[in-house]
């Protein structure tokens, strides 16, 4: 009994710790007074000025474009890598998986500066392209790590059976292998997309002066001082993430039943 109560209290305390900052931001986004300690009445003006701020809207477009493209390209490269690793010798595969793990385990700041040094020496102009290349690089491991377990569960005989029955390699892959690993590919894509959305450090080192993603834009704004527009932005992001997670968590369950 006492144990149950302590558990509930503990959960509540952590809950408050996690959500108090977010709730504060949400409340302040409706605060008419610019000082945070006073409540100056309800307003939507910060939302209005947020949507009128072209730099932020452009940053949002960049963020979404980079997240989508990098996740897509990483998914293609990562999936192909998983297929090829299946037929490799164990030793080669272990070495390759070690390489896959480097960007995941290494500090982001080191990945960021290493790519920065590469782009400088290759003479690539810093901008959209360099950020995209960097994001693809750190997204590939997430794709591989979510496709690989599916790949290992595959029964290789089904693929061979398809070949015996006259299917071409490509057809056998798309009709037999692909449907089985598709959930892994999809979750890899989603993970890569969200990792790209949230990244700041690697973007910070690989972006040019003219381009911003949402994260780097927020960083410059925060360094400048208080911007109630940022609170409005937080609220919008939190609500959309919440809606998205609810959607993802409740749709597949209906199908299962």
């Amino acid at each position: 009994m006492i144990r149950n109560i302590t558990r509930k209290i503990y959960i509540c305390l952590i809950f408050i710790f996690l959500y108090a900052p977010i709730v504060t931001l949400m409340v302040l986004s409706f605060n008419a007074s610019k000082t945070r300690s006073k409540w100056g009445g309800f307003t939507l003006k910060w939302y209005k000025s947020l949507f009128e701020n072209e730099a932020i809207i452009q940053a949002l477009i960049n963020t979404l474009a980079i997240a989508f493209l990098s996740a897509l390209i990483a998914t293609v490269i990562g999936t192909i890598a998983c297929i090829s690793m299946q037929s490799m010798k164990k030793r080669n595969r272990t070495i390759l998986m070690g390489v896959v793990n480097i960007p995941m385990l290494n500090a982001e700041i080191v990945t960021g500066i290493s790519l920065m040094l590469l782009f400088i020496s290759l003479g690539i102009k810093f901008g959209f392209l360099t950020v995209l290349l960097a994001h693809i690089t750190f997204n590939i491991p997430y794709v591989i790590l979510s496709v690989m377990p599916r790949m290992k569960q595959l029964n290789p005989s089904t693929y061979e059976a398809a070949l015996d029955l006259g299917a071409s390699h490509l057809k056998a892959f798309f009709k037999v292998v692909f449907p089985d690993i598709f959930p892994g590919i999809l979750s890899g894509f989603v993970m890569a997309f969200t990792m790209s959305l949230d990244d700041f450090i690697i973007t910070h080192f690989t972006k040019g002066p003219g381009i911003h993603t949402l994260s780097t834009k927020i960083y410059t704004e925060v360094k400048k001082g208080i911007k109630p527009e940022m609170y409005a932005l937080s609220t919008i992001i939190f609500v959309s993430v919440l809606a998205l997670l609810i959607l993802v968590n409740y749709t597949p369950k209906k199908k299962e039943k």
């Binding site: 959500y19 940022m230 992001i237």
Partner: peptide, 25 residues
């Protein structure tokens, strides 16, 4: 418990700045 993790990392840090500042919440 996973949800806050999906918020932008910088905005989460900004939230603590807002809470902790001398004239903060």
């Amino acid at each position: 418990f996973i949800l806050p993790m999906w918020m932008n990392f910088l905005l989460r840090t900004l939230a603590w700045q807002t809470l902790l500042e001398k004239t903060g919440v």
